[in-house]
């Protein structure tokens, strides 16, 4: 349906924005630490999809040397950095949740 509105060109950015909104909803409504981390992890690909989609040019090829009509490679390369940070931070968040739960359990036992 989105493609019929935008003619295919803005599919990725618009899908990205929809994902961001879904993630925000999760973050505002969910009452569970893991679910909140997952909500953040829905926002993140939303941003990546949005940013990468901005570099898309209809009919263009991959940005490799002999090609002349190519898509903008910068958004994709920048998003690589964001994805790496995101993976590391998610693992840290989950580790933190384990620690928080341990403290809660210890407190209940006391």
């Amino acid at each position: 349906m989105i493609e019929s509105i935008t003619g295919g060109y803005l599919t990725a950015p618009i899908t990205g924005v929809i994902l961001i909104v879904i993630g925000l909803y999760g973050l505002m409504v969910k009452r569970d630490l893991i679910q909140q981390v997952i909500s953040i992890n829905i926002i993140s690909p939303g941003v990546v999809l949005y940013f990468t989609g901005l570099g898309y040019i209809p009919g263009a090829e991959a940005p490799l040397f002999p090609n002349t009509n190519v898509v903008d490679p910068i958004p994709a390369t920048l998003m690589l950095t964001t994805l790496v940070i995101d993976v590391a931070v998610t693992s840290f968040a989950l580790a933190l949740i384990i620690k928080i739960e341990e403290i809660e359990v210890r407190r209940d036992e006391d």
Binding site: I20, L27, I43, S44, V47, F51, L54, A93, I100
Partner: peptide
């Protein structure tokens, strides 16, 4: 954890605006 969630949220919005500016 609270710091982390707020930081991630604001980071993604910042990158979103960087995209528009770019």
């Amino acid at each position: 954890f609270r710091y982390l969630m707020l930081y991630l949220l604001s980071s993604f919005f910042f990158i979103f605006s960087v995209g528009i500016i770019y």
